[in-house]
Amino acid sequence: MTETSHDTHVLVVDDDDAIRDLLCDFLQENQLSTYQAANHAQMWQVLQQKVPDVIILDINMPQRNGIELCRELRESPKYHSIPIIMLTARSSSLDTIMGLETGADDYVAKPFEPLELLSRIRSVIRRSRMVAENAGKQSEELDNGILRQIAFNEWTLDIQNRTLIDKLNTSIPLSNAEFKFLRFMLLHANRPLSRDQLMEEMHGREAGPFDRSIDLQISRIRQKIEIDSKNPTVIKTLRNEGYLLTADVRYVK
């Protein structure tokens, strides 16, 4: 384990010793404290000693891969809110989608530009701290019965249970990414949303020219709420603009 005296703490989990060392050296040069873990066992040992501000988690590791570790972290009462950035293979869009659906906050494809990763780290930490600052207010609003459900067409998004309910009152589970995505679109219903706006909301950055994570997320949600996902009527594609969720939306308190 390596640590510096700075205030922001980053845990780097990667089985490649060279990548871990280079990444930690770079982050320390940019005023970030770092910890290292080569596998899942070391990761949990570090977490017992110090809760970091963000975890950099490699997907392709032996024994327990990054997807499994991300899922375990999101299910942990103590560590579920720690921001996670996944390191993925550039050619694997499936790994990227699985990581985001499991609960990762962002991803960077290898080989990556260190300054880009630094920007992503600062972005997810900034958003995480804003969420923490607003947690008390949000909790009070929920206690007072503000916005517990969002009803649209024949569907209801249950905010508290993070599930989708159909007209037969059947609960349909949503991944963390699907829930956040659908909630954002419903809160901005009947207004065009660009891919950059959606990417900023989900990952704190603009969409790159070859980034298909937003399009893939839209496709997965369409499969759940559209009668015919190939001919959508709820989430429409706006050519050269982005997407538009068209629905009669009612906020249930």
Rank of each mutant, 00 (worst) to 15 (best):
N39A: 12
P111L: 06
N169K: 14
A109G: 13
S219M: 02
L193Y: 07
V131M: 00
R74G: 05
K230C: 06
N65V: 09
L23F: 02
I165F: 05
R212G: 01
E206M: 11
V108C: 12
I235H: 10
C70T: 12
M86V: 07
Q197P: 05
T170N: 13
A177G: 06
D16Q: 10
R205H: 07
M202G: 10
A189V: 08
R222V: 02
S139W: 08
R129M: 00
K78A: 03
L182V: 09
Y243W: 14
E72S: 13
R183I: 02
Y35N: 08
N144Y: 13
I19G: 01
Q160F: 06
G136A: 05
S171M: 09
T8G: 05
D14I: 01
L174T: 09
K137T: 04
M98I: 06
D143T: 12
V13D: 00
H9M: 07
S5E: 15
M61E: 05
L174C: 10
Q138N: 08
T102E: 15
R20A: 04
H6E: 14
K167A: 14
E68G: 08
I82K: 07
Q160P: 00
L193A: 06
E133P: 00
D215H: 04
Q49F: 08
V10E: 01
R222Y: 04
Q42V: 02
E140M: 10
R222H: 03
R183W: 04
Q63G: 00
D143Y: 14
I165P: 08
R20H: 04
D106Q: 12
T4G: 14
E154H: 14
E200Y: 11
W44S: 03
I165V: 14
E75C: 09
N30T: 09
M185C: 03
F179E: 09
I165Q: 03
E206R: 11
S171P: 07
Y79L: 12
V234S: 11
E206C: 10
N240A: 13
T246Q: 15
I214T: 04
S139L: 08
K167Y: 11
Q223K: 10
I150V: 14
S213W: 00
L244V: 12
Q36S: 15
L23D: 00
A247K: 11
I55D: 00
L187W: 06
F112D: 05
M61A: 09
D143N: 15
D16R: 06
Q138T: 06
N134L: 11
V234D: 04
T246Y: 13
L47S: 03
I172T: 08
D196S: 12
R71L: 13
S81Y: 12
N30F: 05
D25Y: 06
L245T: 07
Q28I: 02
R205A: 07
L32A: 08
V249F: 03
F184H: 15
D196F: 03
Q138H: 05
A207R: 04
D211R: 01
R129Y: 00
I225L: 02
M1A: 10
V252N: 14
R195M: 10
L22N: 10
L187I: 11
L216F: 11
P232E: 06
L32E: 11
Q138R: 14
F210W: 09
R148W: 08
T237A: 15
R71C: 10
G66T: 09
R148M: 07
L198W: 06
G242Q: 09
K167R: 11
A132H: 02
T8K: 15
L244Y: 14
S5M: 13
